[in-house]
């Protein structure tokens, strides 16, 4: 464990909690892409199946359980409890254009052709594009609530910090996973436009406008 990975995980946890609390407290999922949240639930489910097969550390296990629990709770709030506030018209990204190519790629390019490894690879590739429906929805509505921008900032920051974690681990531990690194770079690049606006627009004053 290093400072980049720890702050990255905490940033990721913060994003997940921010979103869940925002929906729960405001009793509304307006402006939130349910499709992205479903994709994240799939990402965690396919990546954390090793919860059933291997124990790495209490921290690792706890975080995985929290991530999976919060992801499904968020999906439940959006599609069940507060479905009346779900803005389906603007959440119109065709996720099959993400899932099918990612599924195909994970079968073609992976470290090992075993079910668990292919599912892990699928989750790594899917996570790198899972935010697209949310960014697409914001571009369609033309704005985002301030709290949603903080959620996106923390979510984007987490994988950026992981990039530094991988540099650290390559230098100090000789650890190197090309699949995770390439997907992590793609994932972080997708946030660049948003990061620029988040930093330059000083959103604390008005809603995010493209």
């Amino acid at each position: 464990m290093n400072v980049f990975r720890l702050t990255g995980d905490l940033s990721h946890l913060a994003a997940i909690i921010i979103l869940l609390l925002k929906i729960w407290k405001s009793r509304s999922c307006a402006g939130i892409s349910g499709k992205s949240q479903i994709l994240f639930a799939i990402v965690f489910t396919t990546r954390y199946l090793d919860l059933l097969t291997s124990f790495i550390s209490l921290y690792n296990t706890c975080m995985k359980v929290i991530y999976i629990g919060c992801a499904y709770a968020t999906v439940y709030l959006i599609y069940a409890k507060f479905r009346a506030t779900y803005d389906g018209n603007h959440d119109s990204f065709r996720v099959e254009f993400l899932v099918v190519p990612v599924g195909g790629l994970s079968v073609l390019i992976n470290h090992d052709f075993s079910p668990l490894e292919i599912l892990w690879t699928f989750s790594i590739y899917l996570e790198s594009v899972a935010i697209l429906p949310q960014l697409f929805m914001i571009s369609k509505t033309g704005e985002a609530e301030t709290i949603t921008t903080h959620y996106l900032f923390c979510l984007g920051l987490y994988r950026a910090l992981y990039l530094f974690n991988w540099i650290w681990r390559f230098y100090f531990e000789g650890f190197f996973d090309m699949i995770a690194i390439v997907a992590g770079v793609v994932q972080t690049v997708l946030y660049c436009d948003f990061f620029y606006l988040y930093v330059t627009k000083g959103w604390f004053s008005r809603p995010y406008r493209l």
Binding site: R5, D9, H12, D50, S54, I56, S57, N60, M63, K64, Y67, H111, W120, Y162, N165, F170, E173, G174, F175, F176, D177, A180
Partner: peptide
Amino acid sequence: GLDINPKDEL
């Protein structure tokens, strides 16, 4: 050599 991924990351 470079280790294979121990999958110890979240």
